[in-house]
Design a protein around this nucleic acid. Sequence first.
DNA 1: CCGCTACTATGACGACGGTCATGACGGACA
DNA 2: TGTCCGTCATGACCGTCGTCATAGTAGCGG
Lengths: 203, 203
Amino acid sequence: MSGRGPRERMVFSAAQLIRRDGVGATGMREVAAHARAPRGSLQHYFPGGKEQLVNEAVGWAGRYAGKRVARFLAALPEPTPALLFAEMVRQWTDEYEADGFAGGCPVAAATVDLATSTDSAREAASAAFTEWTTAVARALTDLGVPAGRAGPLATLMISSLEGAILLARAERSSRALTEVSRELGPLLDSAVTAPGPGHAAGR
Amino acid sequence: MSGRGPRERMVFSAAQLIRRDGVGATGMREVAAHARAPRGSLQHYFPGGKEQLVNEAVGWAGRYAGKRVARFLAALPEPTPALLFAEMVRQWTDEYEADGFAGGCPVAAATVDLATSTDSAREAASAAFTEWTTAVARALTDLGVPAGRAGPLATLMISSLEGAILLARAERSSRALTEVSRELGPLLDSAVTAPGPGHAAGR
DNA sequence: CCGCTACTATGACGACGGTCATGACGGACA
DNA sequence: TGTCCGTCATGACCGTCGTCATAGTAGCGG
């Protein structure tokens, strides 16, 4: 777990702490201690200060989420959009049942704490979300979802997942996550063969 | 705007600042200044300190969101679940197009910054979400959604909305909000007459 | 041994936050 | 008038945080 260099470990630790405590409540000294890295390395590897560290952590999280999607797809014997989403959700329910509801999504945490940094934090979060979304959209098209619907459906999946994570953490229950997965499943699978949008009210 | 007493103004201002900057980045002095209230009133009205103030702000937000649902329903000439959700989304797109993407949901902000306070903050956020969810679920049943689906669908609506708010703020675009509304609409309306779950893969 | 570079170590500074202590104002009421 | 109490006003304390400055160590080519 965690890359070999101290630098990578610090980025990884930053992402972990941010996703648990938020950006503002995560201190640089804390990151160094968590990564078992010397405090002096902070200003050496991250001359841009906390902003740079947070941005790299967010970017790392986006890349991680994107890669994870492809791995989910490969692991499923008979992949469908609903099963992919169920797998994405399961990643969270598993963690919550194993380690408690301590952590959320680091990108979401960075988005909420926009005021702390300049626009660069927002851009990093936006890039992370787009990376994740395009990965999901690509997976959907691979599963037979028409190109026009893959993007919006990917956005819907990630939005629902992020929101359900919030609810789950607040109520300390995976209920929201499982319900969202169950309710969204049929809609996602119904988009595979359907040529146009929805069923009736296209608008 | 804002109640008459200084106390209510402070709770309201706290909610506004929290939803913009997050819990950690919002200072007590800042809240007092924003509410045009004397700093000395903080320790008088909120002897429980910041924790109490934040919890009351979160509770206020939950109550506000719940009432808002009923008002949306009443304002719609021919209400359907999809139209209700579209109205909930529109509240955010309108604000974002008018005032910029400055603010998010205060309850989400409080949920992300769990570490700052004890469990009471989490309970306040949970209560706020529950209040909001039950209001939406009640509206859905009024619109003809079977009792068994109203709760999960309400959770899905709020999850998607919260997540889309995150995406919208990150990319400074209402795209995610409108796409989620459009994609979720048919599913919501299809639940009105359908007795069982989804269309095919019930489980 | 020198100089150079990458990395580590540590202390200090300035700013800000939440909280507390203390006191002042201003009606209400006897 | 004197006293009480809700409200407001400030200044101080103490901790933490991000950042900077400075110095130390380790390895290496010359």
